Simulated scan of single mutants.
Amino acid sequence: MSRIAKRQLVLYSRKAHERGLTAAFGGNLSVRVGDLVFIKATGVVMDEMSEGQVAVVDLSGNQLSSVKPSSEYLLHLAVYRLRPEVKAIAHLHPPYSIVASTLLEEELPIVTPEAELYLGRIPIAPFRPAGTEELAEVMAEALRGADAVLMERHGIVTVGKSLREAFYKAELVEESAKLWYLSRK
């Protein structure tokens, strides 16, 4: 199972970069398998990622691999602990979503029927410094009642029962942000 999780992380990390959902060192994806979390290692560029650059931690945050997890691992763990049904998380830095998070205050308006069906609502969480317990707490709380959240000035987080689901929700959030932004008068 760990080999499958690593392959999925590499595949969807590269897709995220190719589709402009993140750039340079930004963003991270994770997959939960039982009590283990497979997550992008710190400092890895998503379009260059390999299976050897996947870190493993347990739900208590203990590092179980030779590579260090992304600095946002606390966020991922907080969400997994709060929502045991979640099996994958996408944290990306798509440009329209970041811009929308600076122009809106509470939620990103839902524009398409697909966003209504698959996302329902997209709240905006207040800014907290990256990699901190404060950010992890704010994001876990925001994701208590939503599967997608904009992070003020930072990016997005989406969750799913699979990495495929979390990834495509992220893509749908960015489409929603782009359509909202382009429709502004």
Rank of each mutant, 00 (worst) to 15 (best):
M1D: 11
M1N: 09
A5L: 00
K6R: 15
R7S: 13
Q8K: 13
Q8E: 15
Y12R: 11
S13A: 11
R14L: 01
A16E: 04
R19C: 12
T22I: 11
A23G: 12
A23N: 07
F25V: 13
G26N: 11
G27K: 06
N28R: 05
L29W: 06
L29F: 12
L29V: 08
V31G: 03
V31D: 01
R32W: 02
G34L: 06
V37I: 15
F38L: 13
V44W: 02
V45N: 10
Q53L: 06
V57Y: 00
D58W: 00
L59M: 10
N62D: 03
N62S: 11
L64Q: 00
S66D: 14
P69S: 05
S71F: 12
E72S: 10
E72V: 04
E72T: 09
H76E: 04
H76D: 02
L77G: 08
L77I: 15
L77N: 12
A78F: 01
A78Y: 00
L82V: 02
L82M: 15
P84Y: 01
P84D: 08
V86M: 03
A88F: 08
A88P: 06
I89D: 12
I89P: 02
I89W: 01
H91N: 09
H93C: 14
I98Q: 06
S101Y: 12
T102Y: 09
T102D: 10
L104D: 07
E106D: 14
E107F: 08
E107M: 09
P109Q: 07
P109D: 06
I110Y: 02
I110R: 04
V111C: 10
V111R: 14
T112N: 05
P113D: 12
P113F: 13
E114V: 04
E114R: 11
E114N: 08
A115H: 07
Y118I: 09
L119G: 10
G120F: 11
R121T: 13
I122L: 10
P123H: 09
I124K: 11
I124Y: 06
I124V: 12
A125Q: 07
P126V: 11
F127P: 06
P129E: 13
G131M: 09
G131R: 03
T132M: 09
E133T: 12
E134F: 05
L135P: 11
V138Y: 02
V138D: 02
M139V: 15
A140H: 04
L143Y: 00
L143M: 05
R144W: 03
R144L: 11
G145M: 02
G145L: 05
A146M: 08
A146W: 01
A148P: 08
V149K: 04
V149A: 09
L150W: 03
M151Y: 04
M151L: 15
R153W: 04
H154W: 10
H154V: 06
G155C: 07
I156Y: 00
V157A: 11
V157M: 02
T158H: 10
T158E: 07
S162H: 01
L163N: 04
L163T: 04
E165I: 08
A166H: 03
A170Y: 09
A170Q: 05
L172C: 09
E175C: 01
E175H: 10
A177Y: 00
L179G: 08
L179H: 05
L182R: 13
K185V: 12
K185W: 09
